[in-house]
Design a protein around this nucleic acid. Structure first.
Length: 197
DNA sequence: CTCTCGATGTTCT
DNA sequence: GAACATCGAGAGG
């Protein structure tokens, strides 16, 4: 079952937590489907979160975040890497969840050829997983509730005892209370969770 | 293992 | 012109 719209319309922290364990499915133009289990997420919570792109108002880049929940927000960072996010909350509330790491489930050979790196470095970071699943800006705005070319398939939830939380990574430009906010979620002991430099 | 550096292009000031 | 929700290579311990 592909997760429906109302899942994404919940509060962003709820969505970020509940996405752990769910399966990200990417259907390639060739017809092959690549699948990864979500093991790390971060919440970006709208205009009051100084780490969120939308905190400086609506722009051409962040426009999808202001739209309907359940759509993909993809952008280019450092001129090299793509970030994959999922829009949350009601329309007009510019929030999203960044997918930071996956555990590869299916299509691992294809992921390796897209990345040119060993298994442990296929999907353990936001730029890495985007490359392994051929996700980039041309998919910005697609509706994930269609399930094609991207969808999230329901899978068993991760138990509370397996979930860890902490500050988000790579947001040193934000103000101190937003840097400190424990809005990163990951599956404890999973080897595909990313690490701060 | 850790650290530093450079890549590369879009976005916003 | 600066900054950027990052990554990989290479040097050193």
């Amino acid at each position: 079952m592909i997760l429906p719209r109302d899942f994404y319309q919940q509060p962003t922290l709820t969505v970020a937590r509940q996405l752990l364990g769910q399966r990200l499915c990417r259907r390639l133009p060739s017809g092959e489907t690549l699948v990864g289990r979500i093991v790390e997420t971060e919440a970006y919570i709208g205009s009051t979160d100084s780490a969120c792109h939308a905190s400086k108002g609506r722009t051409a880049r962040n426009g999808v975040m202001f739209g309907e929940a359940g759509h993909a927000y993809l952008y280019l960072i450092y001129g090299l890497y793509s970030m994959f996010n999922i829009v949350t909350e009601p329309e007009g509330s510019p929030c999203a969840v960044l997918i930071r790491a996956l555990e590869p489930i299916a299509g691992i050979d294809t992921m390796q050829s897209l990345r040119g790196q060993p298994l442990r470095q296929l999907t353990n970071g936001p730029g890495r997983l985007a490359q392994a699943l051929a996700l980039d800006r041309h998919l910005n705005g697609v509706d994930l509730t269609d399930g094609d070319p991207i969808g999230i398939e329901a899978a068993p939830a991760v138990a509370e005892s397996e979930v860890a939380t902490g500050p988000r990574i790579g947001i040193g430009y934000a103000n101190p209370q937003d840097i400190a906010a424990p809005w990163r979620f990951w599956v404890k002991t999973n080897p595909f969770v990313s690490k701060p430099r």
